[in-house]
Design a protein around this nucleic acid. Structure first.
Lengths: 175, 175
DNA sequence: GCATCATTGTGAGGTCCCTCACCTTATGGG
DNA sequence: CCCATAAGGTGAGGGACCTCACAATGATGC
């Protein structure tokens, strides 16, 4: 059950040295395409990945405070405001005052929202399957492994000195 | 200082079945963090990843037409306009008419641009190393492998029917 | 020569994120 | 009790992308 990492398949493995920069670029590049493809598939339904994710979350969390959403999604509170605005505009969710704290607002799906959540959830699964189904199960496990490691690494890097100017002359001419 | 990757105790390796959805979410989630960390590290220098990438490109490609940039970066032409505007505003690049085609414009770095490209390139390398250095060389190779496969998959998916809402059941692909 | 179509870049406007400043409430110390 | 500080949400504004519509130019057909 360990050592999932044995799937060493193609050309990449042959070249001995893959630099961090190369992998990084590749990772970012794939993101780019991923977004494009996903959005493309969703465009006809008037939905988007972030919306679906929020819909999904609200569907099985019930009424939730915006700051909780921000925390769970690792977003700035301001961004949640916009997303909820958008959902509310489309009649998929409503804001309600939190009785226990008059500063806070609870967000909750409308019936239309629940409906949308159900169908869009299926759609999302489908899209992910189309893309990540290209990897077999062991490969997916390996990838998840790798991502998990990187995830921890980013947490570690976060809150570090921003690459002190000791090593490079800070440029940035105009304001 | 690659922290030990000995800990393979993630749920991923243990649970036999990692769904496409799970990996997908993880992949997207990491992107989110990656962007945040990178921007954070760069903010003090007034730069950003897309800017650095373009700077780098122009530094060793010389004068380039905007549509070429769009193609190489897989961006909408409109986005290139904005990026070049931004660089021009900061005095890092200039637009020049292409003598061979009066519709086209050539983008070229100024001396300040070349300077900025040099230092920012080093900075970018540093950041990628901090993050992706958490993976050892074989792991990086594996990751690149996986990404390459997915990359090809997205190309395949692109240009598919946008999964009409009525055909939610008709996904005859894998499951 | 001229009508037609393709290509290059841009204006306008939209999405999804961010930060910063601000108002409103909650909470805790004197 | 009152005031300082913290916490929740939002207005304003910015950055990096997108699409759609359009002017200018190039290439091509007749």
């Amino acid at each position: 059950m360990s050592s999932t990492r044995t799937t060493r398949t193609t050309a990449a493995a042959a070249s001995a040295d893959v630099t961090p920069l190369q992998v990084g670029e590749a990772y970012l590049g794939l993101i780019h395409r991923l977004r494009r493809v996903a959005d493309d598939q969703l465009s006809s339904c008037g939905l988007s990945m972030p919306r679906i994710k929020l819909l999904q979350f609200l569907a099985n969390a019930g009424a939730t405070r915006q700051n909780v959403i921000a925390t769970c999604f690792d977003l700035a509170p301001r961004s949640v405001t916009d997303m909820v605005d958008s959902l509310e505009r489309d009649g998929l969710a409503v804001r309600r005052d939190d009785p226990t704290d008059r500063r806070a607002k609870l967000v909750e799906l409308t019936p239309a929202g629940h409906e949308s959540a159900a169908s869009s959830g299926a759609l999302r699964d489908q899209i992910f399957e189309r893309i990540f189904g290209a990897l077999d199960a062991p490969a997916r496990a390996t990838l998840l492994d790798l991502i998990t490691i990187l995830d921890r690494a980013t947490v570690a890097v976060d809150g570090l000195a921003p690459c002190g100017p000791s090593e490079l002359e800070s440029s940035r001419s105009t304001s």
